[in-house]
Amino acid sequence: MNQKRKGKMHSILKGLAVLLFWLAVWALIAHVVNKELIFPVPQEVVKRFFIIIFTAEFWQITFASLLRILVGFTCGMVAGILLAMLMHANRFAEALLAPLIKVVRATPVVSFIILALFWIVASSLPIFISFLMVLPVAWANTLSGIENTDRHLLEMASLYKVKKLRIWQKIYYPSLKPYLLAAINSGLGLAWKSGITAEVIAAPRMAIGSQLQAAKVNLESADTFVWTVVVVVLSIILEKLITALINRRQMRSLSEEKS
């Protein structure tokens, strides 16, 4: 127990040292550049950060962006998984849809944002863009997971006439788990980046991206830094939260299995 606490303390101290090092690098660059407008000093950004986060508007904006991106991410994951299942079951569907998904994957996100601006209202655009970026990731990972499921287990289940739903539940789903986790991890990062980019371009009301754009227009580089830090911190928190949730679920199902 003591050893564990020591290890935790050690990693916190290490993290702090790394943070201090990069803050020093930042301060040094700001000192060399010596232009607040181009590269603000860390103290100014920290000051603005504490001013911004203690406003009610900050929380409304952050919540609105978070909600949009989470909706897009969830829809993208669900659609990607369902498409992969459909394409695995039906070769015609695979032939029909695979090229479309590959095109979506290869197209730059900015092209979609500009195109979609004609079709979708600004506030829904980040949802659509996050959805579009996550879908191919979820699709590709699910399909790999299905294709790498142990054939021997599937043969055994088919010989014993195990019901289709139970085969999905007992064989496919556990095999798919690591692939889905990988999709969640990379999909979440993509959803954030593309969603915020869409907000910068579409500038909906109450959005982190719009705040970034406004800070740029008003030449408030400290605010641009603050909102960027917010995006990075939220992205890390969200990723950790989802990983912790999945791990908790895994632990629970393992203990249920044991009992």
Binding site: H152, L153, E155, M156, L159, Y160, K170, I171, P174, E257
Partner: peptide, 13 residues
């Protein structure tokens, strides 16, 4: 019903 050459057990169950 069959006992396969390999055990074919679900490793997570």
């Amino acid at each position: 019903s069959m006992v396969f050459q390999e055990n074919r057990l679900l490793p997570w169950c």
